[in-house]
């Protein structure tokens, strides 16, 4: 795992260096590599595909403009996620448009997800879960969190980032990340009670 991360950083460093040297194709590779992951981050914070698309364009444009100032003090991954999180939180502070979603956004992979299978067909199956309803309730519950709490939940629970990495991205301590997670989970628990095992 550590080797993969190290290799990824080497690749990123090379692509960043080539971009700084004026090779736009290197930045294309970075966009290709990070857009699905950043899409997840931004989408789960905004719950709106149009906003996510617009924001993602702005995020990569800003990263491209600022990349000459990137000195490699953190990994490119952390640097890019910091830009994305800050821009998304700023956007959410100003947003007037409400969130929207579509059932089509759920890929077929969810039917093979062990958690989903366990939840819907295991001996402890809580209820017949309607996918659309579940998605709607999850999004509603997420949108009731503060922007900062939603960012932590998105990065930790959905994207599987470690606490330390989240702390670096948000510029806060690991303790703060854990504390935010604790309060966010408690809040989510109230909204998603019917989907949770007794």
């Amino acid at each position: 795992m550590a080797e993969v991360a190290a290799e990824q950083e080497v690749n990123d460093a090379e692509l960043v260096s080539r971009t700084q040297g004026g090779d736009p194709r290197a930045f294309d590779d970075l966009v290709r590599k990070y857009s699905p992951r950043l899409y997840g981050l931004v989408y789960n914070m905004t719950s709106n595909h149009e906003d996510t698309n617009d924001l993602l364009q702005d995020i990569f444009a800003k990263a491209y403009r600022s990349i000459k100032g990137f000195r490699g003090r953190s990994s490119f991954y952390t640097w890019l996620h910091t830009i994305a999180t800050n821009m998304t939180i700023n956007f959410l502070k100003k947003r007037s448009r409400s969130y929207s979603m579509s059932l089509d956004d759920l890929d077929n992979g969810i039917h093979h997800d062990p958690d989903f299978i366990e939840m819907t067909s295991g001996p402890d199956a809580i209820r017949e879960v309607n996918l659309k309803e579940l998605q709607q309730r999850l999004n509603e519950a997420m949108m009731k969190l503060s922007n900062e709490h939603r960012a932590v939940v998105t990065m930790f629970d959905i994207q599987g980032m470690p606490h330390a990495e989240i702390g670096k991205i948000l510029g806060c301590s690991e303790g703060t990340v854990r504390s935010r997670l604790f309060y966010a989970h408690r809040q989510l628990q109230n909204h998603l009670q019917e989907f949770l095992a007794a």
Binding site: Y43, H49, Q57, D107, D113, E118, D157, I158, L188
Partner: peptide, 21 residues
């Protein structure tokens, strides 16, 4: 809650979206 939230990983656009992007 963690398990439930992880299901949100499946909410993403089709791969050709990223090429268009």
């Amino acid at each position: 809650i963690h398990k439930l939230l992880r299901l949100k990983r499946h909410e993403h656009p089709t791969p050709d979206y990223f090429e268009r992007f």
